[in-house]
Design a binder for these strands. Structure first.
Lengths: 128, 128
DNA sequence: TGATACATATGCTTCCGACATATGGACGAG
DNA sequence: CTCGTCCATATGTCGGAAGCATATGTATCA
């Protein structure tokens, strides 16, 4: 389940959980957060929303404000909340992995710098 | 560019940078780290390695140990090290986003719990 | 000679994400 | 009155990363 790689879904779910109710507003918040490298693809966002509804993670209802375009308001279902909890676990795992990466990258860079010091001539401040 | 979603490449690069030199060992370390949800696809790993070499991020040479199968030993090129640095920035950004997610998820869950308390009857331990 | 560990590789499919484009109401400007 | 623009939702297409399966070859030990 939580297996296949997916980046948007968790953010969409968490924003809806947080109270952001329709697609256009979600797009603004997602862009604001910087989810999606480059520019956010709204098409993908709307498709994601429809699919989330299709599988029962969110429910929607049309809202027609006086003045302004009609919109779909979304809210999490119980299943949606459960799924959000699953995503939380997955994201924690990702955080762990990213941490692991950054640690390793730091170590490797440091080691390489040290090695190049050995290779290049005497350092500017003179070692031991 | 660093744009399209990619998960394996950065880990492969960092492990090579860290001294892990051939595919089979990389597979072991990647599986060990828990990169890849489920099981690591070694096919993808080897294809990634070939592609990294193709674009000049790593260099390889055959090693034929007495006793044991011949293997390809990989090392980062200068371009590879530069790319690793780019990935470091990207991963930091991802870490930030995941943090943002976890924060929002925590808040949303707390809010929901509070709301359900309001709805359900008096809490077991009696509030204020 | 058969199994198992080491090691590398290719073929096929699925589906997420990038890019482009269409639709339609409201509302102010000209 | 129609033109442009903001709000808002939606579809179509495409490439490629990732998932799944399978093939190949050597060395070692039972």
């Amino acid at each position: 389940m939580g297996r296949r790689r997916r980046w948007l879904e968790p953010f969409v779910l968490v924003l809806i959980a947080d109270g952001t109710c329709h697609g256009y507003a979600l797009a603004a918040r997602l862009a604001d957060l910087g989810v999606a490298p480059g520019a956010l693809d709204v098409g993908e966002l709307y498709r994601t929303l429809r699919e989330l509804e299709l599988v029962g993670l969110v429910g929607s209802s049309w809202v027609v404000p006086q003045g302004g375009a009609r919109r779909r308001d979304y809210a999490l279902t119980d299943v949606g909340w459960a799924r959000l909890a699953e995503w939380e676990a997955v994201m924690r795992e990702r955080a762990r992995l990213v941490g692991e990466f950054l640690g390793a990258a730091g170590r490797a860079s440091a080691a390489r710098a040290a090695a190049s010091e050995t290779v290049t001539d005497a350092p500017a401040d003179g070692g031991t």
